[in-house]
Simulated assay, not measured.
Amino acid sequence: MSKAVVFGATGYAGSHIVDELLTAGHEVVAVARNTDKVAPREGLSVVQGSVTDAAVVERVTQGADVIVSALPAATDEITLPSAVQALLSAAARVNARLGVVGGATTLRVSEGGPKVAEVVEFPAEFQGVITAHADALNALEASDDSIDWFYFSPAAEFGPQNPGTRTGTYRVGSTVLLNDENGSSRLSGADYAIAFVDEITSPKHHRAQIHAAY
């Protein structure tokens, strides 16, 4: 199995991904500013640090097969596009794959149609998040062809407000939002992590945006 380094390991998506990586038998390095939230487990190393610290990034990514960004769109220290740039550099240095927890607003509502961000009227306070995810995806697409990455968009209703349950089922798409028979785009935190880790364990998408929902 691979060695995966997870930045943002204590967040909603990050903590689920760490759990699923361990369940799948991967070696995991969890990087977080506050490590008190990370319970010690077999196969898990915990590092207190930030993606803004170049020395920490260089140290923890040594020997990594996969680097995961489960970072928020913006913090007091850094924005997601800047974090992605730093992790692209790390991935290139150690020849690792980069997986990024993305946003649903970058998806299209139909094949060749407008993006979710262009047709849904979001409150003003969400515009920074929307822009950060769009810019992060642009940074990935503009990166050197030698770097293998995937940007994994969740369902539109994904998040701690809709935690759902673990079912072990999901559908995978690419750049078009997936809806169920009721017209809803949903996915639990646990099932998103299963989909994300399945892509790590058995890579099927390279330098691409992918998406999962029920």
Rank of each mutant, 00 (worst) to 15 (best):
T79W: 04
T79E: 09
T79N: 14
T79V: 11
L80G: 05
L80N: 05
P81L: 12
P81R: 07
P81K: 09
P81F: 03
P81T: 04
P81D: 02
P81E: 06
A83C: 02
A83P: 03
A83S: 15
A83G: 13
A83V: 05
V84K: 15
Q85A: 03
Q85C: 01
L87K: 05
L87A: 05
L88G: 02
L88M: 03
L88T: 09
A90Y: 14
A91K: 02
A92L: 03
A92D: 09
R93M: 03
R93S: 14
V94C: 12
A96D: 10
A96G: 09
A96Y: 04
A96C: 11
R97V: 08
R97N: 07
G99N: 04
G99I: 10
V100P: 02
V100A: 01
G102N: 10
G103R: 11
A104M: 08
T105V: 14
T105C: 01
T105S: 12
T105R: 04
T106C: 09
T106A: 13
L107F: 01
R108A: 15
R108S: 12
S110V: 02
S110P: 01
E111I: 04
G112E: 03
P114S: 14
P114L: 13
K115P: 09
K115S: 13
K115G: 11
V116S: 07
A117V: 01
E118N: 11
E118C: 02
V119W: 07
V119Y: 03
V120W: 05
V120T: 12
V120D: 00
E121W: 01
E121T: 15
F122S: 03
P123I: 08
P123N: 11
P123Y: 09
A124Q: 15
A124P: 08
A124T: 12
A124E: 15
E125N: 10
E125M: 12
F126G: 01
F126N: 10
Q127E: 15
Q127I: 03
Q127M: 10
G128S: 07
I130S: 06
I130N: 01
T131K: 12
A132G: 03
H133I: 06
A134R: 08
A134S: 11
A136Y: 01
A136M: 12
A136I: 07
L137A: 10
L137Q: 08
L137C: 09
L137I: 05
A139V: 06
E141K: 08
E141G: 05
E141P: 00
D144H: 03
D144Y: 01
D144W: 00
D145R: 15
S146Y: 01
S146I: 01
S146F: 00
I147H: 11
D148E: 15
F150L: 14
